[in-house]
């Protein structure tokens, strides 16, 4: 099963389409608005958890106007479940759960540390605007012009 498409959130609902990698058969998952909000307000992950919740997960992902780095040495969050990842990232707006390929990560790490967070955010914003869920070196190439990397 691979993720084919994620639409939304549009007025609080999302549709996420998965496709079978061998026959192409696709399955859509739809979220209902109130249900999505209720479940998110409880601080639970839609689609289940494969990993324990990260410390202060909700505070670090859902609070608006939060400090750039409220917690030092925070580990990157991620989930194996594509549904959870897509939903979290679509709502988070902060890029948590966005997958970075090895090559892209290496490139990001070559950027001086003090500008890295803002570059990362710009790349993730670009990816989100273009409906991408993984950032690889070609995504970075695509935004390179704008950022002067």
């Amino acid at each position: 099963m691979s993720l084919r498409e994620a639409r939304g959130p549009f007025e609080g609902t999302m549709s996420i389409v998965f496709a079978c990698t061998s026959c192409g058969h696709s399955t859509a998952m739809l979220t209902n608005k109130a249900e999505t909000q209720m479940v998110r307000s409880l601080g639970v992950a839609i689609g289940g958890r494969t990993k324990e919740a990260a410390p202060m997960e909700m505070l670090r992902s859902r609070l608006q106007g939060r400090r750039e780095t409220p917690i030092a040495e925070s580990a990157r969050m991620g989930s194996k479940c594509p549904f959870t990842g897509v939903v979290a990232q679509a709502f988070a707006g902060g890029g948590q759960g966005m997958q970075w390929s090895e090559g892209a990560t290496a490139r990001l790490n070559r950027i001086p540390a003090f500008v890295r967070p803002s570059v990362q955010r710009s790349v993730e914003d670009y990816a989100r605007r273009n409906g991408l869920t993984e950032i690889n070196t070609s995504v970075m190439d695509a935004v390179k012009g704008n950022l002067g990397m």
């Binding site: 959130p9 007025e11 609080g12 608005k33 909000q37 202060m56 505070l59 670090r60 992902s61 859902r62 609070l63 608006q64 106007g65 939060r66 400090r67 750039e68 409220p70 709502f91 988070a92 707006g93």
Partner: peptide, 14 residues
């Protein structure tokens, strides 16, 4: 967790 002292506490939602 808040960046600015005087900013209201808002949570992300649609």
């Amino acid at each position: 967790f808040l960046a600015q002292e005087a900013a209201p506490v808002l949570w992300e939602a649609s």
